[in-house]
Design a protein around this nucleic acid. Structure first.
Lengths: 191, 191, 191, 191
DNA sequence: ACCCGCGGGACGGCCCGTTATT
DNA sequence: AATAACGGGCCGTCCCGCGGGT
């Protein structure tokens, strides 16, 4: 029973990693299984919905991981500036340490399936919205008005997502560095 | 001869459209051919490099289309604000009119292939850099210092790309509307 | 389980037959599957190495079949003459009964792939060497010295292979008939 | 015109070489054209019959080349022994110098197409028969009776063909060396 | 009752031998 | 006599159920 759970979670973790790096359609289930060391037959026991369900679960998993990191960053930061800077730098570090492979764990799958699968688009939306909400919550925690915070959160997330895209494409963290300054502006810190 | 050029360009246009909507790996060459009304055998004649070469050409085509639109927007605008607003609104219009299918024509393929294909990543980089450069040029045209303009251009592009991603995922133009205001901030117009 | 073994062996038998008649490159996997009544998908399960692995297995199968026939001929024969004559006549019968389609099951694939695939060349070599060895063993059984037997075995095999080639090309068993007499000479029986 | 003939002959020479090494079905027309440096469109001008006609012409070309070499060997030899030894050694040299790539220029294509193409089988038959005839003629030249010479010629050719097959498969000239001795036996020299 | 080895159709992209057009 | 195009089909393999093991 513990073993079974293990197998399922390992499969999910492998799927999340591969979807993040190669996208949804670029990742074969075969590779996921191989990376997880899981047997093939049991896959449809754990995920009757097939690849789409695996994608959904992987998106949920990755979304929650990032959300909780944002939450912790908010709690651990003395002010809005270090809060936001922390988020941006954590992502830049992830990207650089993985040789520019680990970008946003949601964005690739989100773009690939936005027009094709409602369940995957919904999962991506849940992830992004939870991040927006967490950023907004952090901002209000440091004194922003709720309405301003929500708007800023959207633009901050957009800035980070866009910068991650450019950074992966350029194989350079420069866009993220520039985004760091931009974020402060968007949060209303520098004015 | 005129026919030949037509067939190749039609194939490319169809490829660019489908890659934009469904991504690179989510698009079968068969669908591209069907959409273009082209026969299968000619494909290998026009694109000996296979799907990767088609992707590269489609990226170049789409990249140039957007670049020239930015250039024209700069020339047609009286000031930086209408220049930048024009770009953002044009993209929002594209997205909304296509029922949130036509997002950034580069981003999806760029993310999918960043870690897999150097030629596609290079093509995506060319496109993004040409856009950055064109935005920066527009900004200097309206009085910005070259160094500031370059930095602003990166953050403006990031902002638009991120907003496009969220807008597709949310099926809402709200992120783009918020990005519009953010862009002015990033360009140093509102201060 | 019994079913599984059946499917794989039927595929292999069909492959061996078609490779024998049409050669390796002249045989489409599609035809093998159709002849065996197997679906396409299972093939990759049984033969992850693809066509090359199928070729190797088919060569091994056919090689062993002939080797054991030689062995049995040796055991069933009272002297070297009937032993060798039996081998040659069996091959001539195979060829004639199949309307000159069933020649050597190894030779065609061996020649096609000698310069291209080490694994197929190795499989062909295994087959030929096992035949040589079996012929030599038969010869020693009937009184030949081991060293002489090995040399004779090579020339006998060459003689049969060459005659098979000419017989298929001429659509006539005459070369095999002449080979029959030649073999006795090469074995040192007629002197 | 001289150029045209050149192009045609170069194409044919390249085809003969590639068919010899890789077989008929293993050789793409594309590779033949590339190896010959010929343009692609003119191929069906020179060879309206397509690949089959190219194969036939290549077989004829290679067949005549070997036949004339046998003829010259007969004329240049003082006796049957050096005549036959010369043929076997020339083939062994060809094979070894080409790293065991250049075997019999007819055999591979003959085996591949024996059951499929009457025109290619006929071309192969013409080649082999011309060789048999030339060997027989050489043998009679050195004193053999015509009937004996014809029979010996068949077995000698078989022996050489089989030895070439084994030699390519083993990547060793040993079968050819053993064939050399066998041939003398078959010619009735050693008795 | 949970799990998985084994098998099954369906395309995926590549490329092959060939023909209109000029 | 050579460019430009054309369908067809091959091999790989992808995503997925069916029946036996444990």
């Amino acid at each position: 029973m513990a073993k079974a759970t293990d197998s399922k979670e390992k499969t999910l973790a492998a799927a999340a990693l591969l979807f993040r790096r190669q996208g949804f359609h670029g990742t074969a289930l075969h590779d996921v299984l191989a990376a997880a060391g899981s047997p093939r037959g049991s896959l449809y026991f754990h995920f009757p919905g097939g690849k789409e369900q695996i994608g959904e679960a992987a998106l949920d998993l990755a979304g929650e991981a990032v959300r909780s990191r944002i939450e912790q960053a908010a709690e651990a930061s003395p002010n809005a500036e270090t809060f936001l800077t922390g988020i941006a730098r954590a992502m830049a570090a992830d990207l650089e340490q993985s040789d520019f492979c680990n970008g946003c764990p949601i964005a690739t799958t989100a773009l690939e399936t936005a027009a094709q699968s409602d369940v995957l688009r919904a999962a991506a939306r849940r992830a992004f919205q939870s991040w927006e909400q967490e950023v907004a919550r952090g901002l209000t925690r440091f004194g922003a008005k709720p309405d301003d915070a929500a708007i800023s959160a959207t633009t901050i997330l957009s800035q980070i997502e866009g910068a991650l895209l450019l950074a992966r494409t350029y194989r350079s963290v420069e866009p993220l560095r520039r985004a760091e300054a931009a974020i402060k502006l968007l949060a209303g810190i520098m004015r």
